[in-house]
């Protein structure tokens, strides 16, 4: 089963998509298998992090920006400096996540949430969830 979700992001927003992914797993009816979450963008990423404190999302983006600052001497100048930095961030962070499905549920830790990371924005974005039995 493949399910597509659409998002409207804000600037450098971190969006919790855990509930949507869980729903997709439930809808699939798969009891044991794998769940792939994938975004088809080059300036956005996916990650798993703690959902308890929203300030942690800002820390995450702040530290990503510290490691890959938006600067004006990127060689990729077709779009904007933020876009060029976004490409690097997205490549390093990755655009897909894989989870174990057991007893028809995602095998996530108690503090773990699934998040869509925007490295540009505001943008219209999408991501896919594929659940495979096995």
């Amino acid at each position: 089963m493949l399910k597509k979700f659409e998002l409207q992001t804000g600037y450098n927003e971190v969006i919790n998509i855990t509930d949507q992914v869980k729903e997709a797993v439930q809808e699939s009816g798969v009891k044991s298998g794998l769940c792939l979450v994938f975004n088809p963008h080059t300036t956005a990423s996916m990650t798993v992090t703690s959902f308890w404190d929203p300030m942690g999302f800002e820390d995450l983006q702040d530290e990503i920006c510290r490691l890959i600052p938006t600067k004006v001497d990127f060689k990729h100048q077709h779009d904007t400096p933020q876009d060029a930095a976004g490409h690097v961030k997205s490549s390093l962070m990755g655009v897909e996540l894989c989870f174990i499905v057991e007893d028809g549920k995602l095998l996530l830790g108690g503090s773990q949430g699934i998040f869509f990371l925007e490295f540009d924005g505001p943008r219209k974005r999408k991501y896919y969830v594929k659940v495979i039995e096995g």
Partner: peptide
């Protein structure tokens, strides 16, 4: 304006 991030690429 786009490069100076005055508005989004969109």
């Amino acid at each position: 304006g786009e490069v100076r991030a005055r508005y989004t690429m969109d």
